[in-house]
Nucleic acid binder design. Structure first.
Lengths: 354, 354
DNA sequence: TTGTATGCGTTATCAG
DNA sequence: CTGATAACGCATACAA
């Protein structure tokens, strides 16, 4: 394409680097100045219809495509936006990355993904890399960095951060209602008649972890039940920690009829732990997760969980960034949490009622 | 860091753009020419120890960090390498992406990930984007593009492609022995006494899909068993297709005691299908997957599968690219397939033997 | 070995 | 509205 059949003049694209067509060549072909071509391309100023037509034609005929690198040097904008995630291969963040890529690339931007490895120091280094690459903005998925540190980078370039609620100039935070989600999940178990509901917490230094624990406690309290620390096991959002937690729970001989894990991955680990101890889900114990990752539909049994709109989260943070970039103040809100009831929970059978 | 406490002279970094330090400033501070600084930075030429020391000191003191954008414009190298994957959120490719990122960034490069969406046309567009961004090379994970198309881009910039075996100038292909892996998996089932082994194939237009089917057939043949088309169900590497396949298999009333799915995701789907039909794994039917994705350790039961070293695959393709970039001819080989026996397979019980 | 001059492809700042 | 011309930050022939 672009090469067309009417390849008169110019002939075989010239030299190295794939013999690319430059803006100058377009300008010459269209009989205008390079500046005008640039203006047309960027809508920087109003140009007459005639010239515009000539330029458009030349661009099409020559198959011109702008060079983002040169553009970045000259204009300061690289049309690339940095994304710092925790682990690029996480089943959870994966969806968000896809949402970001889809949205951002549709607007002509390219995402630059870097993994923070769950470390504030590493994250800071990632952001330095991103800044040295002159990204136009940075999207931080959750992240471990202090709010203040983030606010500091927001002073120099637009920042969108998910998973926390904060305010700072040049920064927009997009948070999901983890509290409500956890409350919903616990309430579901309560509605099914469960009273002894164990909780496998996530990393409690992580805002999501904190909020989900809070939601669990709130639901319990609203139901007139006391908070029993013995039913709460620490985890770190990995399958392994879910497995360990459930083993400790069983070994503690504390009675429980249901488990709410602070994320799906831990729920999967817990499920395996239960399976190993010959406890069946949901026959013997009901199990609820959080996030609704792709594989939760196909786990055995399919997992009841709280839907976390990660793809939308990605889309929205990207949109927010795009708006920030044009100087608008984004006002976006994530959809509220929604419980997805599948097959890992069921009504408490009376005989086991304590 | 770099700012240090000894912030004498220069004072608060000057103007806009974060008031960055340029190479010229370093040159001036060190009392040498910009060219020399550039040469030191790139090892382009031998410079005297004195000047080098002065420059190093100036760089450290000023906290200079090169601008990749300018570097890209001037030198043609952007220190970024493009990666086209199929789906950035795939549990399978995720590991490879991590391997690539780790390796590439350790060498000072930044990966630019784009999703090909399983479409040759989309892939081609992705590569165009990458090229317009002047990446120094492209890593293609499997991909749908024709070999010839890939060879064509390899003419203009280094290409590393995984999941296929081909030869072309400027291109290195890194393939995994899918045939042997599938043979191993099938052999395992055979060793356990299974004779009626169903196969859920992957996309047969996909080289991996083809090879795995071939391995299955080869093992059967070596065991003196005929190939029964009725035992082979088509799939497309998704959980959903695995579920469907197993349902069709059961509905066909064809007898089988084991299933080999061409990837883990389909195995998970198949597992759920079996569960729904009240068939237990491995009690009633043994199940083997392929890839050994992270979650296969925690599936119920933990899945016996063929380990595919995806992370290493990512690392090696990155290394290969790095070598290509310095003009070396990479000679890397992936580790051979290895069967990971977990709990989804067991010896065939005589009573069910047909 | 080192410095000088030029160019990379665009955008931005000026005059016209 | 439009066209020269100067940055942008660095690398590289070329000359010294």
């Amino acid at each position: 394409m672009g090469e067309g059949g009417t390849g008169q003049g110019k002939g075989r694209r010239s030299a190295r680097s794939g013999g690319r067509v430059t803006l100058d060549m377009v300008a010459e072909a269209a009989g205008v100045s390079a500046a005008s071509v640039s203006r047309i391309l960027n809508g920087t100023a109003i140009v007459s219809g005639e010239k515009r037509a000539a330029v458009d034609e030349a661009i099409a005929r020559l198959g011109y495509v702008p060079n983002p690198v040169a553009r970045g040097l000259a204009g300061g904008r690289t049309l690339s936006i940095g994304v710092v995630t925790q682990a690029i291969d996480s089943p959870f963040y994966g969806g968000a990355l896809r949402g970001i890529e889809d949205t951002v690339s549709a607007a002509g931007y390219s995402p630059l993904f870097v993994s923070g490895q769950w470390s504030a120091a590493h994250e800071a280094r990632c952001i330095d890399t991103l800044r040295s690459r002159r990204v136009d903005g940075v999207i931080v998925l959750t992240g471990r960095m202090a709010d203040a540190a983030l606010a500091a980078v927001a002073l120099e370039l637009p920042v969108v951060v998910t998973g926390r609620t904060m305010k700072a100039p040049g920064l927009v935070a997009l948070d999901f209602d983890n509290f409500e989600g956890a409350r919903l999940a616990t309430q579901h178990l309560l509605n099914l008649g469960h009273r002894r509901i164990a909780f496998i917490s996530g990393d409690l230094k992580h805002p999501d972890g904190k909020e989900r624990l809070r939601g669990y406690r709130a639901a319990l309290k609203a139901a007139g039940l006391g908070y029993e620390p013995a039913l709460v096991m620490p985890g770190n959002f990995t399958e392994a920690s879910g497995l360990t937690a459930v083993e400790r729970l069983i070994d503690s001989r504390e009675a429980f009829t249901a488990i709410f894990a602070a994320n799906d991955q831990m729920a999967f680990g817990a499920g395996l732990g239960l399976h190993r101890r010959k406890l069946r889900v949901p026959h013997d114990v009901s199990l609820v997760g959080f996030d609704d990752v792709a594989s939760s539909v196909y786990s055995i049994p399919p997992l009841t969980t709280v839907h976390h709109p990660v793809y939308e989260l990605g889309q929205m943070s990207a949109q927010a960034m795009l708006q920030l970039l044009v100087g608008e103040l984004p006002t976006l809100a994530l959809p509220p949490p929604r419980l997805v009831v599948r097959e890992s929970t069921r009504e408490l059978q009376v005989l086991r009622k304590r």
